[in-house]
Simulated assay, not measured.
Amino acid sequence: MPERRIDAIDRKILAELQRDGRITIQDLAGRVGLSSSPALRRIRMLEEAGILRGYVALVDQAKVGLPISVFASVKLERQREEELDRFAEAVARWPEVVECYLMTGRHDYLVRVVVPDLAAYERFLKDKLTRLDGVGSIESSFALGQVKYTNALPV
Rank of each mutant, 00 (worst) to 15 (best):
F142W: 10
A92F: 03
T24W: 04
Y149V: 07
K148A: 07
G65H: 12
A88W: 01
M1H: 10
V59I: 13
D27Y: 01
S137I: 02
L52G: 04
K128T: 05
P116C: 11
L40E: 12
S37C: 03
A143G: 14
V32P: 02
S69Y: 06
A72Y: 06
D10G: 01
P116D: 13
R80W: 05
A88R: 13
K75L: 07
L40Q: 15
V74P: 10
R86Y: 10
V98I: 15
K63G: 13
I138Y: 06
P67V: 03
E139S: 15
L58M: 08
V70M: 09
V155P: 00
L125M: 13
S73V: 00
L34H: 01
V56K: 07
Q79G: 04
S36Q: 08
V97D: 00
L129F: 10
L28D: 02
T24S: 14
V56F: 03
S37V: 12
P95C: 05
M45L: 14
K126T: 11
S69M: 10
P67C: 05
S140N: 13
V70N: 08
V111G: 06
D127G: 05
V91F: 12
V98N: 04
S37Y: 05
K63F: 00
A49T: 07
S35C: 02
E47P: 07
C100F: 08
A72D: 11
V98A: 03
D108E: 08
F87E: 13
Q26M: 10
R4M: 13
R131A: 14
D27E: 14
R78C: 07
N151L: 07
F124Y: 15
Q61N: 10
V98S: 02
L76M: 13
F124G: 08
R22H: 00
M45N: 10
V91C: 09
A57I: 09
I68L: 14
S141Q: 09
N151Y: 05
R53E: 00
R31A: 15
V114W: 01
S141R: 08
E139G: 09
L52A: 12
N151G: 14
R19A: 00
F124S: 11
D85Q: 13
G54P: 03
P38G: 04
A15M: 01
L84G: 12
S35F: 01
L132M: 11
R112I: 10
F87G: 15
L14G: 02
A88P: 00
A88N: 05
S35P: 04
L84I: 15
V111R: 02
E83D: 11
R22C: 01
I51F: 09
Q79V: 02
Y55R: 14
V70L: 06
V74Y: 03
Y101S: 07
V56W: 01
D27C: 04
P116R: 13
V135T: 10
L84M: 14
R112S: 10
R112Q: 14
G134N: 07
Y109W: 12
D60H: 10
T130A: 03
V91S: 13
A57P: 00
A152H: 03
K128V: 12
E89C: 05
Q61T: 09
L17G: 02
